[in-house]
Design a protein around this nucleic acid. Structure first.
Lengths: 236, 236
DNA sequence: CCCCTTTTTCATCACTTGGTGAAAAATAGC
DNA sequence: GCTATTTTTCACCAAGTGATGAAAAAGGGG
């Protein structure tokens, strides 16, 4: 059991006497996270070695442990880095939708769009790092061993916000139905965001998994119609 | 490069002079596949060692290589074993639906049910092995590195059958829309079949991911309504 | 320039990995 | 029992694994 973490003190960054200055180290820290993110997204946690990460980042293996400790802690750091940004964007989007509409003009599709749209936008405008990140989340989402726990830890609050908003919009809906529909939604959404290329070969070039605009044009109405159908059918 | 595979001749099973008899070896082969299936499903390809598989199956490590060759070949054998059964069941189900209805009484929901229902039934009645298998497929489905290629190799034909059937049922629908809707459907379906337990904690006990009856009661109408909405919206 | 701290590199450890070749055991026809 | 074949075990390898401790380099403050 390692008593004291060998990583550097949180406050101090670089240079002498504990004063932050050039923050050169931080650049490397981000470089390592970027490299790890891309590799973990492609090959999963166990499919990547710390040496691969170090090589990709152009640093020594030991530096990874210096900054992040064990390999699993590196993975958590990768996962955490963008999770907070993501949650804030989604929360803001849903709050904005609720604020911009009075209850009468709110629609299920509008709420769902407010829930999903931030992810599509970030994936389209955020660069390769975000693409990798979404692929990583999709993989974790389907990992029985520790996926459920990890997803819950990072993403439960915003999901509850979605469910509660839908519940106020459709008071007669059962929570059971809303949770199941959310599961269907998240399965579709994460598979689309992970851009596996499967639809490209399946459709023989008719569709491209990188075409998130096509996803946007279909996923919102698809999910909304699904929700309404399940709610309408009710308990039975 | 290993010129000749060290695995046993396909025809010969056990005992002397190349005559099959007790087929004791086959039992072990299945035992190894079962062990590998469960472990791969939980931890992924790279998260499992051949020694773990051997230990779980109660055999020597070398025996795995004797029967299956390299680790990756073992994985493919695991994947292939049930894929064929699955495809036959789904094909039969869809053919039966088409045969039992004239075009006027066929519905999108009926076709989708014929496509999904066999998986739900097999998962419910097939035992732990099938549960593991579905979790494994879900994981592969979200694996960018070789997931798309693997899924295409094993499952493309039956998907094309679904798309073509829907196309005859809704001739005005664009193939683009059908393929995207299929992607949404498969994301929902695979996540539900993998039973990650996430919905259990998310819903605070209201739903259980093992409750495939609940999935059955909602997924068909959810997807059918989604399809109809996307088709109705058409190209724009 | 000296001192103190942080960052980076180097060499290495203890252990695990997938995989193999040869010996041993089992199996069955004669 | 003998022989030919298949199945199973055993000992082992070369390469790679995550991780570490100590030395070296870099970076200010005085």
């Amino acid at each position: 059991m390692t008593a004291a973490k060998p990583s550097p003190k949180a406050g101090a960054r670089a240079g002498g006497r504990g004063r932050p200055s050039k923050a050169k180290g931080l650049d490397l820290k981000e470089t390592i996270l970027d490299a790890a993110e891309g590799l973990f997204a492609r090959h999963g946690f166990h499919g990547v070695t710390t040496r691969q990460v170090a090589s990709e980042a152009g640093v020594d293996t030991a530096l990874i442990h210096y900054y992040f400790g064990a390999k699993r802690e590196l993975f958590d750091a990768v996962f955490l880095r963008r999770a907070e940004i993501l949650n804030q964007a989604r929360e803001a989007s849903m709050n904005a939708y609720v604020a911009a509409h009075d209850p009468a003009t709110m629609t299920v599709e509008g709420v769902i769009e407010a829930f999903i749209e931030p992810l599509l936008r970030i994936s389209q405008d955020g660069g390769a790092g975000w693409k990798s990140y979404f692929a990583l989340v999709a993989q974790v989402n389907n990992t029985p061993a520790w996926g459920g726990e990890t997803m819950a830890r990072f993403f439960d609050p915003v999901v509850h916000q979605l469910v509660e908003t839908l519940k106020t919009l459709r008071p007669q809906a059962e929570y059971r139905d809303l949770y199941w529909c959310y599961q269907f939604l998240t399965g579709s959404m994460m598979l689309s965001l992970s851009e596996t290329g499967r639809i490209d070969s399946l459709s023989e070039g008719e569709c491209h998994s990188s075409d998130l605009e096509a996803v946007r044009q279909r996923l919102f109405s698809y999910c909304a119609a699904g929700f309404e159908a399940v709610i309408a059918k009710g308990g039975k």
